[in-house]
Amino acid sequence: MTLLITIIAAVISTVIWYTSSKARELKVGILLYMFWGASLMWLVDAVVEYLEVGAEYFEPAAKDMLNDAFLGISVVALAFTVWMVYLLIKDPQNTVKKLLTEKRTGNK
């Protein structure tokens, strides 16, 4: 479930990155790296588990599935948080800089 959620997030961010120049400007590429990197790594985990347990891999217990889904959503939230912090630090449109300068001149 975690793998599935991460792959869906990776595909959605790739489509957004591909179609929108605004998204590229806002460094959505960072999300692509994180989601695709993690998807590939979890894919290896999934293959290893499949080799160990066989078809049972596709019949997880409801409790495990729920926990994995919760983890998957948390992973997506973490990736978005990392991207947001990166965006604020890099400030590609100088929004933060402009706001801070306006405040400073306003204070004077």
Binding site: T6, I30, Y33, W36, G37, L71, V75
Partner: peptide, 14 residues
């Protein structure tokens, strides 16, 4: 680098 750092970061969280 992006895929390795990003992927291992999210896996560390897991």
């Amino acid at each position: 680098n992006g895929m390795l750092w990003g992927g291992s970061g999210l896996l560390a969280f897991e």
